[in-house]
Nucleic acid binder design. Structure first.
Length: 815
RNA sequence: GCGAGAGUGGCGGAACGGUAGACGCGCCGGACUUAGGAUCCGGUGCCCGGAAGGGCGUGGGGGUUCGACUCCCCCCUCUCGCACCA
């Protein structure tokens, strides 16, 4: 019996594949094969590969190899998302530079990827922290700047006191820093933004094109953009004459307004408080706010607020209602002021109760039938009913439309759309990122660094420890430069870009990674993109994907690309957890993949992880590999396959090939499963096939055809074993990965089926398909059908029964 | 609260509307022993039964169908996302 030694076999093939240049994508336009861009979300080099990488890349690699075997010219690149905070933190701890730590980890991961047999085109490797790369990140910034899509403003920002930098809204989760969990505080800063809100509608509309994305990701994208339709209505402050806009989705409830509320940051608040004689109370409230988190500040049940002492005039009926300032109104959404309609809004209702304000239910005119739902909205039926002015009713889209039209006619408001999406804050006060390529000139203000002066390189010698201002600002000389326009002394912008900027365009760069005169070659991008299959974690469902979609649309508008969506299909792998909990250092339950690969082989690792469960679901390593000292079942199976194929190969020639039908069915099944990312099911089918081969051999029959087909089908899933079998056992000259996916005969793959139809009074009452070559099965199935028919016939007046069953005996009688 | 997804053995999980539980783990029994980090063979949804056999079974309740894990309606439970969004 031959014994399979993966740890000896596998490194040999890694070398051979590299030598043969097996996985290089062919850029030649003359290559007539259809192209397939298989993309995996590039890793952050935080250390060696972890289980999450092992799972995601095993799946992505299977897809890429499968595509290649099906005749595609495959682009399967790899790179590293290598800027970012952890490098600084690690470097501080070790007293080294972030780049040392980063590049060392990249080398470690690269070597592990090789060991795992990933079919990457290594010639396209990139790192976002290379000047050759971030030069073009900076070029993109400049391009956006010149198009008016990058701008600087002073605004309250989310500041993480631990990381000493601002965060994008997207990076604040429940009021805390997404990365370190520290509660975020509010800080007024001048920051750079990308005007992603200009693209809000398109980002929303084009979601419809993303048919091969997971539903939940599509939903998350939609919710994040958060479009609401309604009306903009103008109120006037009675005492000062200031006009204030509010946004509402329920203009039909304008007749139920009993108060008016401003957000704390609303620019009119202090002026109105002074006019109303409540300046001190308002100031107290504002002070209280200063130190509290910007987003999600105390999801207070408390409906606190301070009256401003002034009144707003309701434009629909001229009524004066009291104004308040209250933290439950957010400056970030709508106009920062809302009309208070306690009968039709839960929050307004709570506020009105707290402050003893009247509640008015808007109903249809003249006390006609009230919608019961409308009554539930009225919260305990408190309050007075009022009718809805000149309109037919409330809450229906029609009545809302009527009200909007009427408001517009009266000049009191207009239809409006509001988005939750904010502009993307990209400034970071940290060192390890791409410097923002802007020069501040006393004369010319913000001036983009000219293209021929890019990249603006990071200095080598800088104290990068966080200190509240950008480390680059503390460098003695770095920031001093001259204005590109007038040559006067000027200073560089000392902030760096959010690393999400780096990762929002890397997939373009892969198409022509060595270009040094432009970010990418539009022709090559046009040939390879959009990405056919993107694989990565669901944690990037919003940020990375939204930003990448935004960049793609911008590049489309610039005429650089001919498509508006970068990723056609998206697949999220599940997490690898341990003992029901996500792996973490603090729980001490981390399992590292590479030691297991060293011990049992990469194929065992890959196939174990893919077999463990559906690709999108979390898998619990504790359930897969209960005992680290035991031989993993997948390793044992690979050994059996190895022995069986060698034996089948030895016997082939003198023995007739068998198992043909079974083999063709397996080919069809596995093809289908791989297309649908059902790796676990595909592996099951290969196990069945391998068991059949072994049974055939035990029975003294040949199984050459089946052994060859199995080897081919194994290639995307267990590439090393397949290669060993293909070249060593089956004696082929070229790699199994260059071979075609096993062809299958639809005639053989499809069972020979016979349809039996039972008609009763002209209507089909039953239709049974049976496998004609499996007579036992056929008889059983037909017996079942005839039993069903008999039950149906029982006790009924039946005139005519027709049974059609070609080639089969009449089994049913009746009628 | 809003939205999305999921409920099948001891476990991970299979089943174009057609024999539910493939495949694997675990467990039980056996074989081989040069006693292995093994390997091989058989069994394994639950209940009754020595067996043959029978009954019950895909969260619960209805419906469509000759036939439902699968399609439709209602309910329950769980997971995930968003959440003072006006």
């Amino acid at each position: 019996m031959r014994r399979y030694e993966p740890t000896e076999v596998e490194p040999r093939w890694v070398e051979a594949w590299e030598r043969e240049g097996l996985y290089r994508a062919d850029d030649d336009p003359a290559d007539e094969r259809p192209r397939f861009y298989a993309l995996d979300m590039f890793p952050y080099p935080s250390g060696d590969l972890h289980m999450g990488h092992a799972e995601a890349f095993s799946g992505g690699d299977t897809v890429a190899r499968f595509a290649a075997m099906r005749g595609y010219n495959v682009l399967h690149p790899i790179g590293w998302d290598a800027f970012g905070l952890p490098a600084e933190n690690a470097a501080i701890k070790r007293g080294i530079q972030p780049r040392e730590w980063t590049y060392a980890n990249i080398e470690q991961q690269a070597s592990s990827f090789r060991r795992m047999g990933m079919s990457f085109d290594w010639t396209r490797r990139l790192h976002t922290c290379d000047p050759e790369y971030y030069r073009w990140t900076q070029w993109l910034f400049v391009t956006l700047f010149e198009r008016g899509l990058a701008y600087r403003k002073t605004a309250p920002a989310n500041w993480c006191p631990n990381d000493q930098t601002v965060l994008a809204n997207e990076q604040v989760v429940n009021g805390a820093c997404e990365r370190c969990g520290t509660p975020v505080v509010r800080k007024d800063l001048t920051q750079w933004f990308f005007k992603i809100t200009d693209y809000a509608q398109r980002l929303l509309d084009d979601v419809d094109e993303l048919v091969d994305w997971p539903d939940r990701v599509i939903t998350m994208q939609r919710n994040w953009i958060g479009r609401s339709e309604g009306a903009q209505v103008t109120f006037e402050v009675a005492e000062t004459g200031d006009r204030v806009e509010v946004f509402t989705t329920r203009p039909d409830t304008l007749w139920g307004v009993t108060f008016f509320v401003f957000a704390l940051e609303h620019p009119l608040v202090m002026k109105l408080a002074e006019a109303g004689g409540t300046a001190s109370e308002a100031t107290a409230l504002l002070d209280q706010l200063q130190a509290t988190p910007l987003t999600n500040r105390e999801q207070a049940e408390s409906r606190e607020g301070v009256p401003l002492g002034v009144h707003a005039v309701n434009p629909v009926n001229g009524e004066k209602v009291p104004c308040f300032v209250a933290p439950y109104v957010l400056m970030e959404y709508g106009t920062g002021a809302v009309m208070g309609v306690p009968a039709h809004d839960q929050r307004d209702f709570e506020f009105a109760r707290e402050h003893g304000l009247p509640i008015r239910v808007v109903v249809q005119p003249e006390g006609e039938t009230r919608d019961p739902d409308e009554m539930t909205e009225a919260h305990d039926h408190e309050g007075v009913m009022v009718n809805s002015g000149p309109f037919d009713g409330v809450r229906s889209p029609e009545s809302i439309g009527q009200v909007i039209a009427w408001l517009a006619e009266q000049g009191k408001g207009a239809a409006a759309v509001s988005y939750r999406l904010r502009d993307w804050l990209i400034s970071r006060q940290r060192f390890w990122g791409a410097p923002i390529p802007i020069v501040h000139c006393p004369e010319h203000g913000e001036v983009a660094v000219p293209e021929d002066q890019l990249p603006v390189q990071l200095p080598q010698d800088v104290d990068f420890r966080p200190g509240g201002e950008s480390p680059l600002a503390r460098h003695p000389t770095w920031k001093h430069t001259t204005c590109p326009i007038c040559g006067a002394d000027a200073v560089r912008d000392t902030d760096t870009m959010d690393t999400f900027v780096d990762s929002s365009w890397y997939f373009f760069r892969y198409c022509s990674p060595r270009e040094d005169t432009r970010a990418f070659d539009p022709e090559r991008v046009g040939r390879w993109m959009p990405v056919d299959q993107y694989v990565g974690g669901v944690e990037h469902a919003i940020l990375h994907l939204l930003y990448s979609r935004f960049f793609t649309k911008v590049l489309y508008d610039l005429g650089l690309v001919g498509f508006t969506e970068p990723f056609l299909r998206l697949m999220n792998q599940g997490q690898v957890i341990y003992g029901g909990a996500s792996m973490s250092k603090s729980k001490g339950n981390i399992v590292e993949p590479m030691p297991l690969v060293e011990r049992w082989g990469a194929d065992t690792m890959r196939i174990t992880i893919l077999f463990a469960g559906p690709f999108e679901d979390d898998i619990d390593w504790k359930l897969i590999a209960p005992d680290p000292d035991r031989r993993p079942p997948m390793n044992a199976w690979l050994g059996r396959v190895y022995a069986a194929v060698f034996e089948a190969a030895d016997r082939e020639g003198s023995q007739p090939e068998t198992l043909t039908r079974l083999t063709h069915r397996a080919i069809r099944g596995v093809t289908d499963d791989l297309e649908r990312f059902r790796f676990n099911v595909a592996i099951s089918k290969l196990m069945v096939l391998s068991n059949e081969i072994r049974s055939a051999l035990d029975a003294g029959r040949g199984a050459g055809h089946a052994a060859r087909a199995l080897t081919l089908m194994l290639a995307p899933l267990a590439p090393f074993l397949a290669e060993e079998l293909w070249r060593e056992a089956l004696g082929n000259e070229t790699s199994v990965h260059e071979a075609a996916w096993p062809p299958f005969d639809p005639r053989l793959a499809r069972e020979q089926r016979v349809t039996m139809v039972i008609q009763v009074d002209g209507k089909i009452r039953d239709r049974v398909e049976v496998d004609a070559d499996a007579s036992d099965d056929a008889c059983r199935e037909l017996a079942l059908a005839s039993e069903n028919a008999r039950r149906f016939l029982e006790g009924r007046q039946i005139r005519q029964v027709i049974v059609r069953a070609p080639k089969l005996v009449n089994l049913v009688t009746g009628g």
